[in-house]
Design a protein around this nucleic acid. Sequence first.
DNA 1: TCCCTATAGTGAATCGTTTCATTGACCGTA
DNA 2: TACGGTCAATGAAACGATTCACTATAGGGA
Lengths: 332, 332
Amino acid sequence: MAVSVRDVALRAGVSVGTVSNVLNRRATVAPATAERVLAAIEELGFVRNDAARQLRAGSSRSIGLLVLDVRNPFFTDVARGAEERAQEEGLSVLLADSGEMLERESQHLDLFEEQRVRGLLITPVGDVAARLERLRERGIPIVLVDRMAGAGGFSSVSVDDVAGGRLAAEHLLAAGRRRLLFVGGPLSLAQVADRLEGARAAVAAVPHARIDVLEIPSLTMASGVAAARRILGADARPDAVFAANDVVALGIQQGVGMLGALKVPDDLAIVGYDDIDFAAAAAVPISSVRQPRELIGRTAVELLLAEIEGGHERQQIVFQPEMVVRESTRTR
Amino acid sequence: MAVSVRDVALRAGVSVGTVSNVLNRRATVAPATAERVLAAIEELGFVRNDAARQLRAGSSRSIGLLVLDVRNPFFTDVARGAEERAQEEGLSVLLADSGEMLERESQHLDLFEEQRVRGLLITPVGDVAARLERLRERGIPIVLVDRMAGAGGFSSVSVDDVAGGRLAAEHLLAAGRRRLLFVGGPLSLAQVADRLEGARAAVAAVPHARIDVLEIPSLTMASGVAAARRILGADARPDAVFAANDVVALGIQQGVGMLGALKVPDDLAIVGYDDIDFAAAAAVPISSVRQPRELIGRTAVELLLAEIEGGHERQQIVFQPEMVVRESTRTR
DNA sequence: TCCCTATAGTGAATCGTTTCATTGACCGTA
DNA sequence: TACGGTCAATGAAACGATTCACTATAGGGA
C-alpha cells in the first residue's frame, strides 16, 4: 500500500540514495536521471513519510504554539503572525490551547515534547518555569508570548501590561469617572495581575478615586455576562469598568444591555484590552488598549529562530500599548 | 543527548522489549520490574520519540482539520467541538486554515499527507473532490465539514444552507423589507452559493421583492466594511442586507456606522449567519441564522471514527438551522 | 523424577528516510 | 599508457520504538 523511496528507486532504475538526492535538491543529480525519478514519483504517487524523515533528522519541522484560548481573537491574530513568519522559514506551527487549565497545558507540553518540536512559543497559565527549563535543557528553545520573562531568562515578547493598565485607568479618570471596577481573572495570570497593578497605580494618584476588583474564573464572554449580573445586583455600583480583555468587556456590555438597567457609557463606561476587531463593532464601540497582535506572533518566531540558529542570545522584547478611544467611554 | 529506550533498558537492567511493554501497559510485566523501569525513565528523563513510534505504527495519532479561516469564531467553535471528541479517543487535532486560498489548501493537504494523519476533516475551498478521492484511496478517511457531500460519497456534516438562506430572507421579507442585498463571496464557496440560492427562492415568492448580490473577495470583517462603503455610495440603496456570515455582517454594520449615514435597523436591516457569540454583542445585536457549531465539530469526528474503525459506512448528516431574531432586524 | 504449562523476559527484525564513504566512468593531460 | 580529477550514483548504516517468535525459569501434577 505505502509507496516508499525504495519502490521509486526500483521503478526509476536508480538507488534509494539518488531518489533522496532528487527529493532534497541536494547534490548534483544528472538532469535525465532526476527526470526519470520524478516521473516514477508521479506514477507511483509517492509521498514522503514525515515520521521517517524526522526520525533520521532528530527533530521536526514544526514549532509549537500554546496559547490560553484559541477562541479569543487576540490569540488567533497572534497565531496568524507567527504562522506567516514560520512559513517563510519552511516551518509549520502546531496550534494548541490550554483553556487556561494547568492540566491541559501540561498535556500539550508532553505532546510537543514527544513530537520533538523545533521550538516552543507559550503563553503560560501557571508557574511552569521549572518545566520549561527542563524542556530547554533538552534542546527545545522557548519564547514566552504575551508574558515578560522573569530574571531567569527566557526570551519573551510582551506588551507592557502595567503601562496598559495605567493607560486604561487614566483614561477613565480623565473622563471624570471615580468609582472604577476591574473585572478579570484568574488573578494568577500575569497579564491580569499586571493590568490591575497599573490601574491601581493610576487610581492612587487621583484623590477620591477608587478601584474595586471583581475576579472571574476565566476570560470569556460568558464570564463577562455573569459579571454584569453581579454589577447590576450590587449596592454600590461603579461608574466605570476596566475589563481585563475585550472578550470580557463585550460580555459585560452584552449582559448590562440585556438586563437594560444601565446605559453605556452614560451610566457605565467600559474599557477593554487587546483591541480585537470585534471591539470596534460592538454594541457601543469599545475603547480598548491596543496591542500589536500579529507583530507579537511574528516577533516571537523571530526570537525563536535566533535561538535555534544563533545559540543563546536571549532577548526580552516589550512593546508599548496604545489607548484607543471609542464610544464606550465618552465623557458625560 | 537524546535518551532512548535502549538507555532506559540499560539503566533498569532489562531488555528494550520490556521497556516497551511497560510503556504500553501491554503484557504482563512483573510489578517489581515495571517499577524499576519507571524509576529509570524518571531518572533519565526519558520522553518517547513520537516519530519513531509513528514510523513503526505506520500512521499517527492525529487527525487534520482544515478550515477556511481560523479567525472566524465559527470555525474555532467547530474546532473546539472536534478537539473534545478527539481527545476522548486519544487523538489530537492538527488545526490549519486555508484562508480561502486554493494554494494554501493544497499545501496543507500535502503536509497532512506527509504526516500520515489518521483522518481528515475539511471545509474545502475549491473543487478538491479528485484530490480528496486520492487521499482516501491511500487510506486516509475524510469527512467534509460544513459542506454537503455530493453524490460521490464522502461522509459529511453540514447544515442546510439553502434552508438557512430562505429563513434569513423570509424573516427580512416578513419585516416588510423588499429591496434586499446579499453580501458574500466568493460565490464559488458552496456555503455562500447555497445561502444565496435559499434567499432567492424566498424572494421569488413575494411580489415586488428583489434581491441583488454584492460579491466580496473573502468573508472577513474588512470585506464587510468595504461592502458598506459601496452600499452607501450606491444610487439605489437596499433596505436590508443579508450577509453570508456574521463576521461580514459585523463589518457591514461597523462600516455603515462609521460613515454615519444609515441607521440600523431603521434604514437598513441586517441579518448574519452562524450566530457567533460576537453577533449578540454587536453595535446593534445582529439577527442571525444559528448553526450548532460545536456539535458540527463533534459529529464530524464521530463520523471519522466510524470510518476509521468500521470501514466504509459513509453518512451525510444535515442539521437544520434556526433563525435567531435580534435588534438588527426590528420591524419599522 | 519427569513432563507440561504458565509466566517473564529477550533481542533481532522492522518501519522509511537520509547520510556519507566509496565505487565507477569518463575525460584530458603528461 | 598511466594518472589525476570530476561528476554521478551507490548502498549500507543509522535514527528509536514496537513487535513477535523464542528462551528460561518455576511450579504443579502424575
